[in-house]
Amino acid sequence: MLSNSPTLQHSDRTYSINCNGRLVQLDTPKIMGILNLTPDSFSDGGKFNEEKSALEHAEKLLKDGAEILDIGPQSTRPNAEFLSASEEINRIGNIISLIKKEFPESLISLDTFYAATVKFGFSEGIDLINDISGGQYDAEMFDTAAQTKLPYILMHVNPSYETMHDKIKFEDITLEVNQYFAKKTKELLEKGVNDIILDPGFGFGKTVEDQMKMIHEVEYLGFGRFPLLIGISRKSFIYKPLGKSPLDINEETQKLHMKVLEQGAKILRVHEVAETKETLTHFLRKK
């Protein structure tokens, strides 16, 4: 549900998404907890890539305040190992169905750029598709998203897997991202994907300066037509200029989380769920 008033900012708008027949209201921003099933993710690789550890971490994320679990079978950090769809599916195994059985109220997002992995995840019970490629790395992705009728997270990224992390200095990053969103959302809507969430793609092929500009201009991204997901957790544009490690920037990250919440962000994709929950609680008290 989206208000039609052109004067409303993101923060004033109400949205809902249909997750497998379950209507999820985004009036109150949601926390998406990251569950990497990978051996090579940049900050938690190898920690949760077995069923027992994955289930335990899923439980912790939910207890700490996550309402969505984002399951990632493949790392997309620079120089990560490239997996095929079948390798992703093998890596996921029974994790989705086990989490759904253990925590039936949880919402599960699947982080993949493969249509085949989405089809598998849909059969196992996922609730959202989180495609970092904007449908650019698999020609069947948009059609598959339409077939599932699941909410689709559309991220801004360079047009190929090989160039994903190539740094581009845009003349106007906000304009560039909005032009991309306008083109891609038109394609998705024409195919019948109605629940779209926009992700401006922090950490993917953008300079530090452009990413900080996006932080300050979140309210202008997507023109308020669709809900915004912001994923800045442990990203290098925060920790590298400070000379810190990805695990050492919680205070700085939470300040930026507050800034994007104030501009209308509806989903925060994070590693540190408990700390982000505190930030969200503080934000809601201020409203």
Rank of each mutant, 00 (worst) to 15 (best):
residue 15 Y to V: 06
residue 18 N to V: 11
residue 21 G to Q: 02
residue 22 R to F: 07
residue 31 I to N: 03
residue 31 I to T: 09
residue 36 N to P: 13
residue 39 P to D: 03
residue 43 S to G: 08
residue 45 G to H: 04
residue 52 K to R: 13
residue 55 L to D: 06
residue 61 L to F: 04
residue 63 K to D: 03
residue 69 L to T: 10
residue 70 D to W: 05
residue 72 G to Y: 04
residue 75 S to L: 07
residue 76 T to M: 01
residue 78 P to K: 09
residue 78 P to S: 06
residue 79 N to W: 00
residue 79 N to I: 09
residue 82 F to Q: 14
residue 82 F to Y: 09
residue 90 N to K: 15
residue 92 I to A: 02
residue 94 N to P: 15
residue 96 I to M: 04
residue 99 I to D: 01
residue 104 P to N: 05
residue 105 E to T: 15
residue 106 S to C: 11
residue 108 I to G: 06
residue 109 S to M: 02
residue 116 A to Y: 07
residue 126 I to S: 06
residue 133 S to Q: 05
residue 133 S to V: 14
residue 134 G to C: 11
residue 136 Q to N: 14
residue 137 Y to A: 13
residue 137 Y to L: 13
residue 139 A to I: 14
residue 140 E to G: 05
residue 142 F to T: 08
residue 144 T to N: 01
residue 145 A to Y: 02
residue 145 A to C: 09
residue 154 L to K: 08
residue 157 V to W: 00
residue 158 N to W: 01
residue 163 T to Q: 10
residue 165 H to G: 07
residue 167 K to C: 05
residue 169 K to H: 12
residue 170 F to A: 08
residue 171 E to F: 10
residue 174 T to Q: 02
residue 178 N to Q: 08
residue 180 Y to I: 11
residue 180 Y to N: 11
residue 187 E to D: 09
residue 190 E to F: 06
residue 192 G to E: 00
residue 196 I to Q: 08
residue 196 I to L: 05
residue 198 L to H: 06
residue 202 F to A: 02
residue 203 G to P: 09
residue 215 I to G: 07
residue 217 E to A: 07
residue 227 P to H: 09
residue 229 L to G: 03
residue 233 S to I: 08
residue 236 S to P: 12
residue 239 Y to P: 15
residue 242 L to C: 13
residue 262 E to F: 08
residue 262 E to R: 14
residue 264 G to K: 00
residue 274 A to R: 10
residue 275 E to W: 05
residue 277 K to P: 09
residue 285 R to V: 15
